[in-house]
């Protein structure tokens, strides 16, 4: 079947087997190997990408389901050569160790911060329960997301009350 997708701003047309998973399309056909496979069952979250702006686990989507969709992977998260605040925050707060789950965690968090720009620690933990990390114990991942939220609200002015909430 032919699909037409826009991945990280670039349009592609490919003939694919109907059973080809989106994650295999991204990794093997487009060679965007930043998206990883950890369980093939949509539990671990290593394969998380954005499909039409929403976080989705690409190991349980067929490539054909992404026909006419816009997809963003970890490789496309930086804009105009500038890393996303989550990317810089993960480095600053040591939010990663082996790096394997990291792209998926960052993509999940990027979508979540759009919905909830000023999350509490508990809300971040709940938002990330679909992403496994075996290295960090999640502590510095949570802190990385908190820092990114702060950075993002600094770049987008918010009301004073809201800003105070962020600092908690």
């Amino acid at each position: 079947m032919q699909i037409h997708v826009k991945v990280n701003g670039v349009e592609y047309k490919h003939d694919v087997e109907p059973r080809l998973l989106l994650v295999h399309y991204l990794r093997d056909v487009l060679r965007l190997t930043g998206t990883h496979i950890g369980c093939e069952t949509s539990i671990c979250g290593a394969c998380t990408v954005h499909v039409n702006g929403k976080a989705a686990k690409s190991c349980t989507l067929f490539a054909v389901q992404a026909d006419n969709c816009e997809i963003t992977t970890i490789e496309g998260l930086a804009q105009n050569g500038e890393l996303h605040p989550l990317q810089t925050s993960f480095k600053e707060m040591h939010g990663l160790q082996c790096g394997f789950c990291t792209p998926g965690v960052i993509m999940t968090a990027a979508d979540y911060l759009k919905q909830n720009p000023h999350p509490t620690e508990e809300e971040i933990r709940t938002a990330l329960e679909g992403n496994f990390c075996r290295c960090t114990g999640y502590q510095n991942i949570v802190k990385s997301v908190q820092l990114a939220a702060e950075k993002m609200s600094e770049s987008k002015p918010v009301t004073k009350e809201k800003k105070e909430e962020v600092v908690v």
């Binding site: 965007l32 990883h36 970890i74 490789e75 930086a78 890393l83 790096g99 394997f100 990291t102």
Partner: peptide, 17 residues
């Protein structure tokens, strides 16, 4: 801060698969 992070946060790690 870790130098290896630069590749991991941008999806440029190189794992066997």
């Amino acid at each position: 801060k870790r130098v290896e992070d630069n590749r991991f946060i941008t999806g440029k790690g190189n794992y066997t698969d």
